[in-house]
């Protein structure tokens, strides 16, 4: 593709909503604006910002001369991107084959009932975010979930309730 020359929008040219994107320079560092860099750029943005806020999608879109919808369409196709800010605690629920068979879905439903949010979402108070993963690599312990760094295996609805109660009173 021919060289693309465009004045960069000034940082504050874009409307400020959600968190301001200061690490913009870091996000685009080493990339030269080719559309094929979309996924790596989004990955960098997510690793720096923790998630992909609308501003980031908008800036990445304008930088790569794509529409926001195209960027969002690609981003939502991959399970790795999240669009809500991460919570203080991170729950990952495994729905891989083994865990699915052993009742992973019930674990997810329990979480949903207790926290009021589903996979890919963050509770309104910012305490928990919930993620579903395909396999945590310890199928012998199925069904498995993790709370922050701790791995909880051979879960049941009751055990999960207990863990959440303990967290709530901690």
């Amino acid at each position: 593709m021919a060289a693309v020359t465009r004045p960069q929008p000034e940082l504050d040219d874009l409307p400020a909503s959600s968190p301001p994107i200061d690490p913009w320079a870091q996000i685009v560092q080493g990339f030269d604006g080719n559309r094929s860099d979309l996924v790596p750029v989004l990955q960098r943005a997510q690793s720096l910002l923790g998630y992909l806020p609308p501003d980031a999608v908008r800036r990445v879109a304008r930088w790569l001369r794509l529409s926001e919808s195209e960027v969002f369409g690609v981003a939502t196709f991959y399970a790795q991107f999240r669009f809500t800010p991460p919570g203080r605690h991170h729950v990952r629920i495994c729905l891989g084959t083994a865990c699915h068979v052993k009742g992973g879905v019930q674990m997810l439903e329990t979480i949903q009932r207790r926290l009021g949010v589903g996979a890919g979402e963050t509770t309104a108070d910012g305490e928990y975010d919930v993620e579903r993963v395909a396999c945590l690599g310890c199928c012998a312990l199925a069904p498995v979930l993790t709370l922050d760094e701790a791995i909880h295996g051979q879960m049941s609805v009751l055990k999960l309730q207990g863990i959440l109660d303990a967290e709530a009173s901690a």
Partner: peptide
């Protein structure tokens, strides 16, 4: 050449529309 619409999400949840469920007005 407007690219307001895209396929969002995947599998059974696939949906047509602009980013983040914004309105068409906002999406350009």
């Amino acid at each position: 050449g407007t690219s307001v619409l895209a396929f969002k999400y995947r599998g059974r949840k696939t949906l047509i529309g602009p980013a983040f469920g914004t309105s068409h007005i906002e999406a350009g």
